[in-house]
């Protein structure tokens, strides 16, 4: 009973306090993980540590990552716009969140 109540309370916090869990998680990935890694890299020279030509690898990886994020942005935008149009038509008077999809 206690665990159920606690679970219910946590769920309510997520619904009512952290309305945009996506934004929250996005910020965690970008700010927390991103900053931690960048600070680490700024202080430690991985080129010396792993004996690789770090500049060369980095410039080649930039191209790959740019392609990957372009595809990711493309498919996300297409999918989300379709979902929003469908949801808008299907549930004009309710928030999509209430149908449990978002």
């Amino acid at each position: 009973m206690m665990t159920q109540k606690l679970k219910y309370k946590i769920k309510n916090i997520f619904i009512h306090q952290l309305k945009d869990l996506g934004t929250f998680l996005g910020a965690v990935y970008a700010l927390v993980i991103g900053s931690a890694l960048m600070i680490l890299e700024y202080n430690i020279d991985f080129g010396v540590l792993f004996k690789i030509n770090i500049f060369d690898t980095y410039s080649r990886l930039i191209a790959v990552s740019n392609v990957l994020i372009s595809i990711l942005i493309g498919i996300s935008l297409t999918t989300f716009s379709v979902i929003f149009v469908v949801m808008q038509l299907a549930s004009h008077n309710f928030h999509p969140e209430f149908y449990g999809i978002f």
């Binding site: 934004t23 996005g26 910020a27 990935y29 970008a30 993980i33 994020i69 990711l72």
Partner: peptide, 11 residues
């Protein structure tokens, strides 16, 4: 959504 936004930011 969080993963997608976070990934784009990390890149």
């Amino acid at each position: 959504i969080g993963l997608f936004v976070g990934t784009i930011s990390l890149c």
